[in-house]
Nucleic acid binder design. Sequence first.
DNA 1: CGGGATCCATAAAGATACTG
DNA 2: CAGTATCTTTATGGATCCCG
Lengths: 135, 135
Amino acid sequence: MATRTAEERRRAEREAYDAYLASCPARQVLDRISDKWVSLVLNALGDGPLRYSGLSRRIAGVSQKMLTQTLRNLERDGLVSRTLTPSVPVRVDYALTPLGESLLPIMHAAKTWAETHIQEIHAAQSTYDQNPPRP
Amino acid sequence: MATRTAEERRRAEREAYDAYLASCPARQVLDRISDKWVSLVLNALGDGPLRYSGLSRRIAGVSQKMLTQTLRNLERDGLVSRTLTPSVPVRVDYALTPLGESLLPIMHAAKTWAETHIQEIHAAQSTYDQNPPRP
DNA sequence: CGGGATCCATAAAGATACTG
DNA sequence: CAGTATCTTTATGGATCCCG
């Protein structure tokens, strides 16, 4: 048999790390809020409840698939509530739960940091691009 | 020609929205820090400078490809500095720039929120999974 | 109206092998 | 040591058709 000690060890390392990451709360939350549509939906609902079609119009670029998927995940995580009104054409309202609302401040903090430092980042990018370290 | 008014309008909508998103500072920054490896690298460097191999060992699960790619992007964004020492085997040190360090507090805030609320999220997930809204 | 299900294109991540 | 180059695999997102 080949010496697969090295590769096996690496694989085990990776798996252990993956498991570690998967159990890391910060990672789990970061993974979610970093989602393109999650942040947009959360933001949209921050102004008050919306219906499915309302969200769809508010976000504009989203496909129903992604909107539905995003809403399901947020509902599952307890960040968003889904209220179904069985009227003639059914009506569904989405709103932030208290847990979802508690997330807004940190989203806002991120937004503030972004707006404060985006010029520095763009400047750094220009410098980097105009003088490529390794062509 | 077919009536492609509707589909064309949708496409235009999407493109406009994509452009809007691309120019949104919050999005740009969120997209970056939400990256799996970015947050890990930033965290690792938060304890002090590290060499390439040091980072590689510290993060363990990362491939050189992703580590290099992540470091390049962070360097380009001005969040991480790269110092090359042309000794016999070359030596490269990576460290956070002041800009990079200014990002740590918000990463920490996200981590704190995560640790504070992860139980609620897990609880919500359990409830959701045990009683699937739509089977 | 509010989705579910399916198919498909592309992009992103990983494994692998090689280099100055 | 610190990467680069290439190939393969996987994940993501969008288009489309359909239903209660």
